[in-house]
Amino acid sequence: MSDGPWTPEGAGPDPRRHAPATMRNRDAIVAVLQDELPATGLVLEVASGSGEHAVHFAVTFPALDWQPTDPDPAALASIAALRSDAALPNLRAPLQLDAAGAWPVDATDAVLCINMVHISPWAATLGLLAGAARILPPGGLLYLYGPYLRDGVETAPSNLAFDASLKARDPRWGLRRMEDVIAAADAEALIFDRQVEMPANNLSLIFRRR
């Protein structure tokens, strides 16, 4: 089954949140990123959620600086708490960033976005693509991870059920056609490089700035 949205757990003053899918997918994502990320530089993560991916990636790629972001104040609080626990010199304080709005980062060497495209309005994806194109250098990486519909490929029943549940929560949400994302990226001078089959019926989509 595809990864669901991160869910705040528990109550009380502890801001830390846990996204169960993070533990399941993070090493598979790292295996792809090892071949795609630059050796050094700044990586911007859009929609960092709980912050667990950001901590794991900062540990795994110590030569890269990691900038987590999210539009949700609860997510930002979780990221900040986990960052304090980890005390990593290459993990920056989280920034508030709405993919469809203004971006607080002017330049980066790579952009990552995990499990946002289907759990947000289409305008957020368009904003993500436009923002990435604006701040990436030529050849810079845009990495997307999540479930997608694909022309000519039968959609897994679990993904169909997940799509229906997302649309029931918000009609603006839902699985996107990979071909639509690629076309929108191309319009922003982000060239589709390749796709990688991932666990639980997810995909990694690799784009490069023209």
Score class of each variant (00 low, 15 high):
178 M>K: 14
43 V>W: 00
71 P>N: 10
58 A>M: 10
159 N>V: 08
78 S>L: 05
63 A>E: 12
104 P>L: 00
42 L>Q: 15
143 Y>A: 09
68 P>N: 05
104 P>I: 06
77 A>V: 06
13 P>T: 13
80 A>S: 13
18 H>G: 09
151 D>L: 11
85 D>M: 13
91 L>F: 03
67 Q>W: 01
165 S>N: 12
154 E>A: 15
63 A>M: 08
46 V>G: 01
182 I>N: 02
87 A>S: 14
130 A>P: 06
60 T>H: 14
116 M>C: 10
206 I>W: 09
11 A>S: 15
138 P>W: 05
58 A>I: 10
99 A>N: 00
15 P>A: 04
89 P>S: 11
133 A>L: 06
168 A>D: 09
11 A>C: 10
34 Q>I: 07
136 L>M: 00
63 A>H: 13
170 D>E: 13
167 K>Q: 11
83 R>C: 06
25 N>P: 07
157 P>A: 04
184 A>D: 03
158 S>V: 08
195 Q>H: 11
157 P>S: 07
174 G>K: 04
108 T>N: 04
202 N>I: 03
65 D>K: 10
8 P>R: 11
74 A>C: 09
90 N>H: 10
123 A>D: 09
57 F>H: 10
103 W>F: 03
134 R>A: 13
81 A>M: 04
92 R>F: 10
53 H>F: 02
96 Q>K: 14
14 D>G: 04
110 A>W: 02
42 L>H: 15
15 P>N: 09
134 R>N: 03
26 R>F: 07
126 L>S: 08
171 P>F: 06
177 R>I: 01
65 D>R: 14
62 P>K: 12
89 P>N: 11
158 S>M: 12
42 L>W: 11
58 A>D: 12
26 R>Q: 14
203 L>E: 04
1 M>R: 13
127 G>K: 08
